[in-house]
């Protein structure tokens, strides 16, 4: 596997790994790791680093919804234009064009269900190209970014074995 791909995999496993440990894991020198990461960031392969949060554990309200959107397009307006407009809202945490019965799948986050409802009805539905919205509030999150929220990470192996 080429070094950059290897670095990506190591960072996807744990983006907080420091340069020295990334160097040890990949066999690159620290300066090579720094240069490769700078490249990956510069060319836009790495777009950012985020924490995966279990909001249940945070002592404040947090709500999330998956919103299905149908849109209508015309000569001047394509999916790209509509998506740009929608993506600008800070409430939208992710936005995908999908195959199937609707066009966009949009994940919306806010501090309450009420705020999300208002956001969808006041900001999203009025967008001229949007013809229909269906909002699914998230009731429970079991897995996020590859991490199980109730994952049991106890090591039940024998502590020493041949």
């Amino acid at each position: 596997m080429e070094p950059k791909r290897e670095l990506l995999e190591a960072l996807c496993a744990n983006a907080r790994t420091d340069t020295a440990d990334l160097a040890r894991q990949t066999g690159l020198s620290e300066s090579e790791v720094e240069a490769a990461i700078a490249d990956l960031e510069g060319e836009g392969t790495i777009r950012g680093y985020q924490a995966i949060v279990d909001w249940e554990e945070v002592d404040e309200d947090h709500a999330r919804a998956a919103v299905e959107l149908n849109v209508t397009l015309d000569r001047e307006t394509g999916y790209a234009e509509v998506s740009e407009r929608l993506a600008k809202f800070p409430e939208v945490s992710s936005l995908h064009l999908v195959s199937g019965n609707y066009d966009f799948l949009m994940i919306v986050e806010a501090s309450s269900v009420r705020r999300i409802s208002r956001f969808v009805s006041e900001k999203v539905a009025p967008v001229p190209e949007v013809t229909q919205t269906v909002t699914h509030f998230v009731m429970e999150t079991y897995k996020e970014g590859g991490i199980e929220m109730n994952g049991d990470d106890d090591d039940d192996r024998l502590s020493v074995s041949p």
Binding site: R157, L158, S159, V160, S161, P162
Partner: peptide, 26 residues
């Protein structure tokens, strides 16, 4: 008898052990 047994027992006695003695994947 197995030569590993002794280390297994010693390791089991303690709480804070990190084991690099395991012969199977995690």
């Amino acid at each position: 008898p197995s030569g590993i047994r002794k280390f297994f027992e010693l390791a089991e006695e303690r709480e804070d052990v990190i084991s690099l003695g395991v012969g199977e994947p995690d």
